[in-house]
Amino acid sequence: MRNDRTIRPKSWLTFLMVAVVVIAACGGRQADRSLILVSAAASLTDAFAEIEEEFEAANPGVDVQLNIGGSSQLQHQILEGAPVDVFASANPTVMQTVVDVGLALDPILFAGSRLQIGVPNGNPARIGGIGDFANGDLLLGLCAETVPCGSLAREILAAVGVEAAIDTSEPDVRSLLTKLEEGELDAGIVYSTDIIASRDVTGIAIPEAIDLIAEYPIAAISDAPNPTGARDFVAFVLSEKGQQIITAHGFTAP
């Protein structure tokens, strides 16, 4: 015999679970004045963490959330409709693709960065300069060609005519830096800002590449869930205070 009474609590549970799934599916991100979602290139991690702190201190009740990743990865998220308010890219070309589809308005350059050769402290492999990247006996790394630090590094290598014998193409500059910090790689080409931020990596300048500077554009996303917040954040980055933070982290002014 089937007893409906004993089944009822379970149906309740079922209903509850279905309800949770449905509500969660409809949730998404609502317009919320207090939240600003900022997608920033991996190399901006430390600088933007400080900007976030200062901005939140200046605007009580506002919560800035940083979405850190490779510039092109962030670009794809935005193109696929991620509810981002501000995009700070390490590469004007990547920003341009977002502008081209009408998703970003008037990007402005807010920082620049030079590439340097990063070696573990003490330079155990005695790296002298960019020419050492042709040495197949060394363990060498670059960023992947698809991220700005990788394409720029390859531009430099091509400009000085060095055929690099690399052992890894790291997905972003932070993971390349980690492998240098751990001493797993003898040398890699990273931003000078990353070297400033790292206690375990020493920089060697690349005089041959003095003209090649990574440029960082920033823009509000045109269908930002929080357009006012987006505008305010961009303005803050470009303000004197924002620029002070940027240059304190080793970036050059635009």
Binding site: D167, T168, S169, E170, P171, S175, K179
Partner: peptide, 12 residues
């Protein structure tokens, strides 16, 4: 894999 072995076409 990518953290321990790196990423190089034809090798890892």
């Amino acid at each position: 894999t990518i953290t321990f072995a790196g990423n190089l076409q034809g090798r890892t």
